[in-house]
Design a protein around this nucleic acid. Structure first.
Length: 417
RNA sequence: GGGGGAAUGUCCCGAGUGGCAAAGGGGGCGGACUGUAAAUCCGCUGGCUUAGCCUUCGCAGGUUCGAGUCCUGCUUCCCCCA
């Protein structure tokens, strides 16, 4: 598997990004000459991408860094159709305004990983709505559709799994792979794109695109997929106490993002350092030799480096400092997620239950009440045992905040305003 | 077109003789132990102004003191025959 001569392929290989590749040697040769134009499509199904997409984003990052061209394709068109890959049920069809809003919100994170203004080979961010929405049905069938064999499409995993389980697969979803294949061809024509990257579940769709390219007369196209990233305990990566691990700061604070990495399994540290940070591999090798409690140092490094990539060095540093003073010194660190409340409201007093719900630490009064019974609730590090307790201005610490804790890990500051 | 099954706690799977806020899992959350890890053990896992009240078993009606459970109609899905 080794023996790559290009920086791009060597880095991807060494850091564990490669699952399948249609022609490793051919791609290596292209990359060696800096001639790779690679893209990844991101559908706009939510207002933010989450860590699940981070592997892909990191590949684009390395692609550009190694002197090739990276394209982040927004799926403004394909999202209107919905990818059935790896799903048991059809997605709800999203409204066009939603897709548009999602797209804008998603696009922001890429500037952290890609340079769109570089003088040489700047990264690009087209939207497949640019061409897909202009297609005419008959032309589409004649130009593109005739190259697709239904027999073969039925054998593709994304389709076959649904059919085997006798689960509904609508015609619109069935068309997704055709659109994705066509994207590849269109990007090849527009920008000289020759590589599509993606998760392992995208292999079928990508290879279809290569096939279509051959039939429609493009230059040679390549496919490269990443392994499915799971945690050491086998779970799909990307859950935390706060829910999904979003990349947008307004949906998951840099502090919580840092915590996500800080809390990873021991067995994941090395792999995650290679995939989600840009630390040199010898440094990674050194970090993973740490044993037992010392491994925590490696986790902090992972958290800070990964957070720095996404939210900037300052935010990462601040998250680390906040974590240290919260967990290692037990203070109400100012950098904790903060919830604002009217000063007047606090003056007249607010019940603990309501306050914890407002701060997002409990879903309902009942849940907060149960948490109190379980001994999980603390105000200013004092355990609360009375669910009728009232919180008011006298609870403000010298820092002018009230620290709420749900269990040992979830802390929020309440600040009057 | 005919016949037979299924739909349960708004995360999922799943039991449920007319007395049911409804067994059991998984997942999640919390606690203990640890290292903010894993494993293990324990608790919690409809809502509320909580001695009580309210809303839940596909949808709409009905029988009954009382319906997840019985009856009727409807919707969706699956199986068999055509």
């Amino acid at each position: 598997m080794s023996g790559f001569t290009s920086d791009f392929m060597r880095i991807l290989d060494e850091r564990g990004f490669i699952h399948q590749c249609s022609d490793p040697q051919g791609l290596d040769a292209l990359a060696k000459r800096g001639e790779v134009v690679g893209y990844i499509g991101f559908d706009c199904t939510a207002p933010s991408l989450h860590v699940g997409s981070l592997v892909q984003i990191m590949m684009l990052h390395w692609l550009q860094l190694s002197g090739n061209r990276a394209i982040a394709l927004m799926g403004g068109g394909t999202t209107r159709v919905g990818d059935p890959s790896g799903r048991d049920e059809s997605r709800k069809l999203l409204g066009i305004e939603d897709i548009d809003a999602n797209k804008k919100s998603i696009a922001a994170v890429f500037s952290r990983f890609l340079d769109f203004t570089a003088p040489a080979r700047p990264a690009l961010m087209p939207d497949n709505a640019e061409w897909l929405t202009k297609m005419n049905y008959i032309d589409m069938l004649r130009d593109v559709g005739r190259h697709f064999s239904i027999n073969r499409m039925l054998s593709m995993d994304s389709v076959k799994l649904r059919l085997d389980r006798e689960q509904e697969l609508s015609f619109i979803e069935f068309n997704y792979m055709i659109l994705q294949s066509y994207d590849f061809v269109e990007l090849a024509r527009r920008y000289g794109t020759n590589l599509q990257l993606g998760g392992s579940d995208q292999w079928g769709n990508i290879v279809n695109g290569i096939d279509l390219g051959r039939r429609m007369g493009t230059h040679q196209l390549y496919a490269l997929t990443t392994p499915l990233i799971t945690t050491a305990s086998g779970a799909k990566m990307g859950k935390t106490a706060a829910g999904a691990v979003w990349l947008n700061a307004d949906m998951l604070s840099p502090y919580d993002y840092w915590q996500f990495w800080r809390n990873c399994d021991d067995g994941d540290v090395g792999r995650f350092l290679r995939l989600f940070t840009t630390l040199p591999l010898d440094e990674v090798a050194r970090l993973v030799t740490l044993q037992g409690a010392e491994l925590n140092e490696a986790k902090k490094r992972l958290a800070t480096e990964a957070t720095a990539l996404l939210h900037g060095r300052d935010a990462a540093q601040q998250a680390e400092t906040t974590a240290r003073s919260t967990f290692e010194m037990g203070h109400a660190a100012a950098g904790l997620p903060t919830h604002h409340i009217e000063r007047s409201e606090l003056a007249s007093g607010i019940g603990v239950l309501a306050l914890f719900v407002r701060a997002g630490l409990a879903a309902s009064n009942g849940e907060a009440r149960r948490a109190i019974t379980n001994g999980a609730v603390m105000v200013n590090d004092q355990r609360v045992s009375d669910d009728k307790a009232m919180i008011n201005v006298s609870d403000l610490l010298v820092e002018g905040v009230i620290k709420l804790s749900m269990g040992k890990k979830r802390h929020v500051l309440v600040r009057p305003s």
